[in-house]
Nucleic acid binder design. Structure first.
Lengths: 110, 110
DNA sequence: TGAGCAATTGAAGACTTCTTCAAGTTGACC
DNA sequence: GGTCAACTTGAAGAAGTCTTCAATTGCTCA
């Protein structure tokens, strides 16, 4: 690997660092989804969604296939699905931890 | 939680999206580290490191304590250490998966 | 072939984040 | 107190990312 590992990791996390992209990846975690549905679920403008999908595609973590007039997206591999599950679990724990921290700070503050 | 979950997750990942911050978090995964050592390990300018540490502090995932003339940083809680371990594992798998993908593409291309 | 929907692309401006510099704070030691 | 080292802060310009618009491609169906 040419690029230093920290750099690669940072790039990867930065790629995850957008609400629409996260949402898309979680939806794809359940299975392939046509763009039309992603559009409906995320509620963003079509061109904006396309831009975000392009970021995910460039990162190689999703793939798109055409099905007639529609395009369907899917996670590029099972690793990605695992990753999303793990990220979800971790994040939930993490945010919960922070919520508790905030709660305890609020009590102290009184 | 007021902020939509996707937003919170995205912010969290964005916070991880910097090579110096990743490096720092991994070093702190082993235990508390004085700024002096972080400085030596990362090789960045002091003020730059301080800025990155401030980002991590604001996110609440590290804490700093003064020890005489030195400042020592540590992960804010055990959850964070777990998180870093999980992130490392996931990322390694992920990057490995990508490497394999690239390798197979290279073969196909010939 | 042409109308029309689905999705993507390119480009421009707004907005964030990074890096760097100079200045400030805090504690140790004389 | 004065000075030095360790670290942090604020601010400014450079660099990167987001959103949006208009234009484009690919497909279907008449």
């Amino acid at each position: 690997m040419q690029v230093p590992l920290y750099q690669a990791k940072a790039e990867f996390f930065r790629m995850l660092g957008h609400p629409v992209r996260i949402r898309v990846l979680e939806l794809l975690g359940e299975g392939p989804v046509p763009v039309r549905d992603l559009l409906a679920e995320t509620g963003v403008e079509a061109s904006n969604l396309s831009q975000q999908l392009a970021v995910l595609r460039r990162a190689g973590i999703v793939v798109s296939t055409r099905d007639g007039a529609n395009v369907v997206y899917a996670l590029a591999g099972p690793d990605v699905a695992d990753l999303m599950r793990a990220a979800r679990r971790i994040l939930t724990e993490m945010l919960q931890g922070q919520a508790e921290l905030l709660a305890s700070l609020a009590v102290e503050g009184e």
